[in-house]
Computed example of a mutant assay.
Amino acid sequence: MRLLLIFCLLLTTAAQAACPPNPERSARHTELMALLADAPNETVAREYSNELWNIWGTAPDTTAQEILQRGMERRQAFDLRGALEDFNTLIDYCPGYAEGYNQRAFINFIGRDYEIALEDLDRALAITPDHIGALTGRALALIQLGRDREGQLVLREALKLNPWLPERNRVTPLPPVPQETVPEVEL
């Protein structure tokens, strides 16, 4: 048993070392972000957004791509446990790849584990700050947790990047800033 544990640890370490670094942001990615922000209608925005999803969904190597694809197929088949296992494997293999965290967050969101989803969304956004899917997911998770003001602010941030997001209908007036109660002091 101990040898098996050591073997698994060595395999995990070797797998992490084998994942290549993320490629630099492409000129097309930058161009798409600008085009999307100024898209004249929802149809055009969807075309740009789909191309961005293709960029975000392109893993650093073939192994990572296969793990990502299998996890997404499992999610679509409602095998959420299997999908979660795949996304955990992907993150272990390529901890610098934002889409692994974003996809795992989506599984946790579906399972209503919003706090865990937020942790992964924050990791995805630390790697790819303009990941519109992660921003939108973060906004929705915050709202589900009753953190409406914070969620609405994040949703507005996502809408600056893509004003045609389907979630645009979730924008509500900003709740007031909570007032801190100041204890009264007797003089």
Rank of each mutant, 00 (worst) to 15 (best):
A37E: 06
A34Q: 14
E73C: 01
N50W: 01
G111Q: 12
T13D: 02
E184N: 03
I132L: 06
L10A: 15
P163A: 08
L36H: 00
L80K: 00
L32T: 06
D120A: 04
L10H: 07
D130N: 15
I143H: 05
E42D: 10
T58Y: 03
D120C: 04
P178C: 01
L155N: 02
N108R: 14
L125Y: 08
E66N: 12
L145N: 03
Q179C: 03
Q16F: 11
T30N: 06
A141G: 00
P176I: 11
Y97D: 09
A18G: 04
D122T: 14
E47Q: 14
P176C: 08
K160S: 06
F87G: 04
L5T: 10
L140I: 10
A34S: 11
V44Y: 03
N88H: 12
R104C: 09
T172L: 15
I132V: 15
A98Y: 04
A18Y: 04
I67R: 02
L80E: 03
R138D: 02
L135P: 01
P183N: 07
V182S: 01
P129G: 03
T128M: 10
D86R: 08
N41S: 10
F87H: 06
I91K: 06
L174R: 11
M1W: 09
L3P: 00
L155Q: 06
A105T: 12
Y114T: 04
T43E: 13
E99A: 13
W53Y: 07
